[in-house]
């Protein structure tokens, strides 16, 4: 058959019926993410949260390059100083600059938060997608999720840190060892909410026509999940990600605060707060900065998560 279709009979006299013409939108089409951004921008708390969070991360990772003091530099002659121009947050009992330690601690805390969140997100999405997509795995995986939700998490995390600290320290060195341990401890104990949400969304998604269409042209399960399912459950995963960072930072700080986190010479925000409580009578101001850093980071991450949830929810969007 040739490509050139026969010309339709010319009917110049008859005007097309107005109702039969497809209405052409005047504005160019908008992508989904543009709508999301528009909604997100209107949420003041979320915008403020995003700005503060980015500022904190920049300060913590770029700040040390511009700051003359090393976090571990001991200057015993200038110990226990109050705030001054040289040391805006004072110095600790060994004369280490508190601002430098706060930034170094922030690097660890934020890295732990992000890495643990990624691990929890990976586990949660994996379990959620598998449980939602493969009917046979559903019962088993959801029982597993219920079981994990019934575990007393903080006590178990404390026990895990106690049990594996020395082994991992021996294998990877004291800093990397405890980093891996805490990230894994937080990751394997916080994937359950993500898994549940993702499973619910996948279950609903599986019944839609485009999945049937993709199936009918012979899409394999792997490609179906990667190409059609995952992009569509991205919004709950993104919300879980921001809330997960907040959760992971709090958990890490709590572990460090209980003395079962990072070693003393390796600052994190929780550890700094814990160390400062020993000098509560003499230098109460030392408690303030690490605590404020934790609170501000978590608060902004929570606001960001709230705003994202609203922006990504099509029922709220455009209202």
């Amino acid at each position: 058959m040739s490509d050139t279709s026969p010309k339709p009979e010319a009917t110049p006299d008859v005007a097309p019926i107005a109702a039969l013409i497809d209405p052409m939108p005047a504005a160019p089409p908008r992508s989904q993410w543009l709508d999301v951004w528009d909604q997100f921008r209107r949420h003041k708390g979320a915008m403020a949260g995003a700005v503060v969070l980015i500022l904190i991360i920049l300060l913590v990772f770029v700040g040390p390059w511009f700051w003359p003091y090393e976090a571990s530099h001991i200057d015993i002659r200038s110990r226990n100083q109050g705030p001054s121009w040289a040391h805006p947050m004072g110095t600790d009992q060994l004369g280490r600059d508190m601002l430098a330690r706060l930034m170094a601690g922030g690097q660890t805390s934020v890295s732990v938060g992000i890495t643990a969140m990624l691990l929890a997100l990976f586990l949660g999405s994996l379990v959620g997608v598998l449980a939602g997509y493969f009917r046979r795995l559903d019962g088993l995986l959801m029982r597993l999720t219920d079981l994990f939700l019934a575990l007393p998490l903080l006590p178990l995390m404390l026990v895990m840190v106690l049990l594996f600290r020395d082994k991992l320290n021996g294998a990877f060195g004291p800093e990397t060892g405890i980093f891996i341990l805490i990230v894994v401890a937080i990751g394997v104990t916080s994937w359950m909410p993500t898994a549940r949400i993702v499973r619910g969304d996948v279950l609903a998604l599986k019944e839609q026509e485009f999945v049937l269409a993709a199936r009918s042209i012979g899409t394999t399960n792997l490609r179906m999940i990667l190409r059609h399912v995952l992009p569509n459950v991205l919004s709950p995963i993104m919300v879980s990600a921001t809330l997960g960072i907040a959760n992971a930072i709090i958990t890490e700080s709590a572990l460090s605060f209980l003395g079962l986190g990072f070693p003393p010479d390796f600052p994190t925000w929780g550890r700094l707060l814990f160390d400062a409580t020993d000098y509560l009578q003499q230098h109460p101001e030392r408690v303030f900065w690490p605590g404020l850093a934790i609170s501000l980071t978590v608060l902004s991450a929570n606001y960001l998560g709230d705003g994202l949830r609203d922006a990504l929810d099509p029922r709220i969007r455009g209202r």
Binding site: G45, A246, I250, S253, A254, F257, G270, L273, A276, T277, L280, Q281, P284, V287, F288, G291, I294, S295, V298, L299, N302, Y303, D306
Partner: peptide, 23 residues
Amino acid sequence: SMVGYSVPTFFTGVLLIVIFSVT
């Protein structure tokens, strides 16, 4: 409520101690 939910109890607790016990 957002602040109360975000600020960890080990910070609020220590802060209260600084204000009401130490000071």
